[in-house]
């Protein structure tokens, strides 16, 4: 089983390379659709046609597209992601500073969603078809239909402006002051977590309903084990298969949600960086950011696949 799993992981990781290549090539092509803009931006009032052409040559923007891409790729392999046209900041350094912000946002949001979704899902499975179940399901559907941006605005109004409980924007790095950091992340995390818990709850609920019917649960009950123990210890693990898949899907959605939330709350994360880079035609930064986001996204999918393989009941329960 060990080497099979390793081969499986290896194959998937290899798959990563062509995907990243294609995605970055596409970004590069998209970015290059507007060649003149970068030079014009940088020259501003100096942007005479002669100067624009000269700067384009200096930056290598007049090279054929595949050459530019090859140069960038070559730099990538040596760890040089290039330097932002706009700020002169090395792209890798910018990403390194911004990645922790986005990672923290997504991790806390997913944890928050789990903290809400798992108990509520189990509750619904245990109290199937009662008023509680219907209420929670209705709530789940409701939250699924809320765009995170609207939730962000409403939460800001009540929690920040009206009641002054949380700061409305701004970011304090974790290293500086952990408590202030958590406070500054609270509203963004809530805006995402409240929207992401429904799929988790619902999938867990439907899976647990199946599990709870199985023989080994009846056995546990016959043995006299407490209901809570049954729920948490015996029923949760087999039901977590689909849950893991949904978490993977969630994380994909979270990336998009994180971008909007970062823009709304002014968090200096990767999402905000991508938006700014697109709007200011800072293609070097955009490409570097896309590489990271793509890598992250694909790695998450691979991890989910792996967990799926590990948790597969056919493997776990064998033929028993």
């Amino acid at each position: 089983m060990g080497w099979r799993l390793a081969a499986f992981i290896g194959r998937r990781l290899l798959y990563l390379i062509p995907i990243v290549l294609v995605v970055t090539a596409l970004t590069s092509a998209l970015g290059a659709m507007l060649p003149g803009d970068v030079a014009v931006s940088m020259l501003g009032t100096q942007a005479t046609p002669a100067k624009v052409a000269a700067l384009q040559h200096q930056l290598g923007l007049d090279l054929p597209l595949w050459r530019q891409y090859a140069n960038w790729l070559g730099g990538l392999i040596t760890g040089d992601f290039g330097v932002s046209y706009r700020t002169g900041e090395p792209v890798l350094s910018a990403i390194a500073q911004r990645l922790p912000v986005t990672a923290e946002l997504m991790a806390l949001a997913e944890l928050g969603a789990l903290a809400l979704g798992v108990p509520l899902g189990m509750l619904c499975a245990a109290r199937r078809d009662t008023a509680v179940d219907r209420l929670v399901t209705a709530g789940a559907f409701g939250m699924l239909s809320m765009p995170p941006y609207l939730l962000a605005v409403v939460l800001t109004y009540f929690l920040a402006v009206l009641w002054g409980v949380l700061p409305s924007s701004g970011y304090v790095p974790l290293a500086d002051a952990p408590l202030a950091n958590l406070r500054s992340m609270a509203l963004p995390v809530l805006s995402l977590a409240l929207v992401e818990w429904p799929p988790l709850a619902r999938v867990l609920r439907s899976d647990m309903i199946t599990t709870l019917r199985q023989d080994f649960v009846l056995m546990a009950r016959a043995k006299g084990l407490s209901p809570l123990r049954i729920l948490f210890v015996h029923a949760l693990k087999p039901s977590s298969l689909a849950l893991v898949t949904v978490i993977g899907l969630n994380l994909g959605r979270l990336i998009g949600g994180a971008v909007i939330v970062e823009v709304i709350f002014g968090l200096p994360g990767i999402g905000q960086m991508l938006v700014d880079a697109t709007l200011t035609r800072d293609f070097i930064t955009l490409q570097g950011g896309v590489v990271f986001v793509t890598l992250g996204f694909v790695l998450i999918n691979i991890t989910v696949d792996m967990l799926y393989a590990v948790l597969d009941p056919r493997v776990r329960h064998g033929s028993a």
Binding site: I19, L26, I255, V259, L274, V275, T278
Partner: peptide
């Protein structure tokens, strides 16, 4: 499909609408 799905959708939407 995988390649298109690996692309951050919001970024793609941004670049295309910007262009």
């Amino acid at each position: 499909a995988d390649v298109l799905l690996a692309f951050p959708p919001l970024v793609l939407a941004l670049v295309l609408t910007a262009y």
